[in-house]
Design a protein around this nucleic acid. Structure first.
Length: 197
DNA sequence: TAGAGGATTGAT
DNA sequence: TCAATCCTCTAC
């Protein structure tokens, strides 16, 4: 079952960040469908979180999609190299978003290995910058509706009930001072696909 | 309009 | 440990 708009529009980015674990992310690029179970996320809250691009409610040309209503994709380039995929949540003017840091490949594995230039499944989607490459996500997905037919999410019945969620600090946000210590990174306990330093 | 730096990765 | 690499933001 496709995850609908109401899921993303709730005013609780931390709750949504955890509920996304175990759901399935799909993309359709070049008529090829790739899918993966979301196993690692990070929450960013624009109004109170110094690690967020939208702190403190700052609207720029880059992050403006975060101020739209939830259920859209926020894509941006980091270090001039990698695109990162974020899910916008909450109602309009509330700049909350969730970074997808890792997925577990489910289908379209051949396509993902090909895009990553690898011969094995090892580490083809275990990191925010490489899962976008594997799934064909680039800047053209900026603002894409997450209930459309290029990228969408789906509930995986039973998954959420059986997983254990680990809460810890986010990665690469040392510049955010005390907010870098917030336990807003979530991942599935013992899952081999989470990103590793 | 120029300059600094980043929600990362992979090779050394 | 460190370079790659380019877009965005900020200040002049």
């Amino acid at each position: 079952m496709i995850i609908d708009k109401a899921f993303y529009l709730r005013n609780d980015v931390l709750q949504i960040g955890q509920e996304l674990l175990g759901t399935i992310l799909h993309t359709r690029v070049d008529n090829k469908i790739t899918s993966g179970i979301i196993v690692e996320t990070e929450a960013y809250c624009g109004s109170i979180d110094r690690a967020s691009h939208a702190y403190p409610g700052k609207l720029t040309n880059r992050n403006k999609i975060m101020f739209e209503a939830g259920g859209r994709a926020y894509i941006y380039l980091i270090y001039g190299i990698h695109y990162l995929f974020n899910i916008v949540t909450n109602k309009s003017d509330m700049a909350d978003a969730i970074l997808i840091r890792a997925v577990e490949p489910v289908s379209g594995v051949e396509t993902m290995m090909q895009r990553r230039g690898k011969n094995s499944m090892e580490r083809i989607t275990s990191g925010p910058g490489i899962l976008t490459e594997a799934m064909g996500i680039d800047k053209s997905f900026y603002g894409e509706d997450l209930t459309g037919n290029r990228v969408w999410l789906e509930y995986a019945p039973g998954n959420f009930e059986k997983i254990q969620i680990v809460k810890t600090t986010r990665i690469g946000v040392d510049y955010a001072g005390d907010d870098a210590k917030l336990p807003w990174r979530f991942y599935i306990k013992d899952n081999p696909w989470i990103s590793k330093p």
